[in-house]
């Protein structure tokens, strides 16, 4: 190998390394945001909730940085095959992580609604659901860092459990709302929170697919999203 190619290879490795590191940093922020948002909700911790909302800006900033970086890398180095795939995947993953951050922010924004908390029985399902979703995000970011296609696949397999949680929570909440019309506001917010979590699970799955693709070059079969059939979409506040 000639000296120039060696140099180019080294420079490319540095660039892609930086790109991946930025994505990982974003992931760390989003992961923490989800955990904190749920924590804030359960403990009615307004301070933490406000911090989650505030720190979302940093995630957005990083996304822009990732994009700049990726575009420059592709333009300057004109990577091929595996390398190109990796660069594009990193950019796409950053976009999805940014969405996860938004959902965390949405959840955090709803915390003040629960000031006078009523005992909403279905609420007890929420932490368990949040736990699985957080684990999915955590594991998919680990898979990304390790370029571990197998671990990515495991994440995808868990999405079904999240959908099940969501569906049962959805039903329980609807029933509850019918019986307790005075708690309708809080119940509705809970419904949206559950939907947000369910979407985070979907996004973790999307990332897993991209990690898998970047690592192996193979697409996984598209999943059928059952929850979409009767689930309300969260309103888009950002």
């Amino acid at each position: 190998m000639s000296n120039t190619t060696e140099h180019t290879v080294k420079a490319f490795d540095d660039d892609i390394g930086e790109l991946r590191a930025l994505v990982s940093e974003m992931g760390g922020l989003a992961e923490t945001a989800i955990g904190d948002a749920i924590h804030a909700l359960i403990r009615y911790d307004l301070e933490t909730a406000a911090r989650v909302v505030e720190q979302d800006d940093r995630i957005d900033e990083l996304e822009a940085e990732v994009e700049r970086h990726a575009v420059r890398l592709i333009a300057l180095r004109a990577p091929l095959a595996d390398d190109l795939r990796e660069a594009v995947a990193a950019m796409k993953i950053a976009t999805v992580i940014e969405r996860i951050g938004d959902y965390a922010k949405n959840i955090a924004k709803r915390v003040p609604v629960f000031e006078h908390r009523v005992e909403i029985e279905p609420l007890s399902i929420l932490p368990a659901m949040a736990q699985i979703v957080s684990e999915m995000v955590h594991n998919v970011l680990d898979a990304f860092a390790a370029r571990d296609a197998e671990k990515a696949k495991e994440v995808i397999e868990r999405d079904e459990a999240v959908d099940d949680f969501y569906n049962s929570l959805f039903r329980a909440l609807l029933t509850y709302m019918m019986e307790n019309s005075h708690n309708i506001t809080q119940s509705t917010h809970l419904l949206f929170i559950a939907k947000n979590l369910e979407r985070v699970g979907d996004h973790a799955t999307n990332i897993a697919e991209m990690v898998h693709f970047a690592a192996t070059g193979e697409y996984l079969d598209d999943r059928v999203d059952v929850s979409e059939t009767f689930a309300p979409e969260p309103e888009e506040d950002s």
Binding site: A21, L22, L29, L141
Partner: peptide, 10 residues
């Protein structure tokens, strides 16, 4: 690797 890939805590 970049250390942020090893420890991604904000």
């Amino acid at each position: 690797q970049d250390v942020r890939l090893a420890i991604r805590h904000p």
